[in-house]
Amino acid sequence: MQMPRNNRSFTQLMEFNIEPQWQQALVSALSEQTERLARDHQGLLSASIQASEDGRRVLNYLQWQTREAGEAALRSVEAGEQDFWRLVHRAKAVTFGSFEVLCNIERSLDNALHCQLVD
């Protein structure tokens, strides 16, 4: 099924390189921040926070209904709490990326795979 270009969802990816002793604190802070975003902003479709097994990286994935919803939420985070930003500044490197979703493959409750292409 093709979706019109203006209906494409929007994904934000943030990868943090951090010392292993700070990984769990960053995961906790990102979890709290993501819960606030879901509660305070319309349009969050899904989110995921992933930690590398070596303790040195954390990946934060946020998918929004629209680019506008994601950007509005990001602006609120930029003006966010000092404790959160102090922890983020412990990262050796942070990579931010924004992506337009072109294809989703999902498994339904009946175990069927569905592929949704966006033109």
Rank of each mutant, 00 (worst) to 15 (best):
L13V: 02
L44A: 04
V94D: 08
G55E: 02
Q24T: 08
F96W: 12
S108D: 09
N17R: 13
R90A: 15
A93L: 09
M3K: 08
D40H: 06
F84R: 00
E100A: 09
E100P: 00
S108N: 05
D83M: 06
R86V: 08
F99P: 04
G43P: 06
M3S: 12
V27E: 02
G70P: 05
F84N: 01
T34P: 02
D119K: 11
Q65M: 05
A38H: 11
L30Y: 12
R56V: 12
R8C: 11
L109C: 01
L109I: 03
A29M: 13
S52G: 05
D83K: 11
D119E: 11
N111G: 03
V101L: 13
S108Y: 02
F84E: 01
N7V: 02
L62E: 14
T34F: 07
A69G: 01
E71A: 03
S98F: 14
D54M: 11
S52P: 00
E15V: 11
A72Y: 07
Q63V: 00
E81M: 07
Q63R: 07
D54I: 14
Q63S: 01
E68R: 13
L44N: 02
L26Y: 03
E15S: 06
Q21R: 12
M14S: 06
T95D: 14
Q82D: 04
Q23A: 01
V101P: 12
K92Y: 15
R5C: 10
I18V: 10
W22E: 12
I18P: 05
E19F: 03
D83A: 15
Q12I: 09
A73T: 00
N60P: 04
A29C: 14
F96N: 07
Q42D: 11
S48V: 03
L113C: 08
C103I: 12
T11Q: 07
L13W: 04
N60H: 15
A79E: 07
L45P: 03
F96I: 05
E100F: 08
V94L: 09
E78P: 00
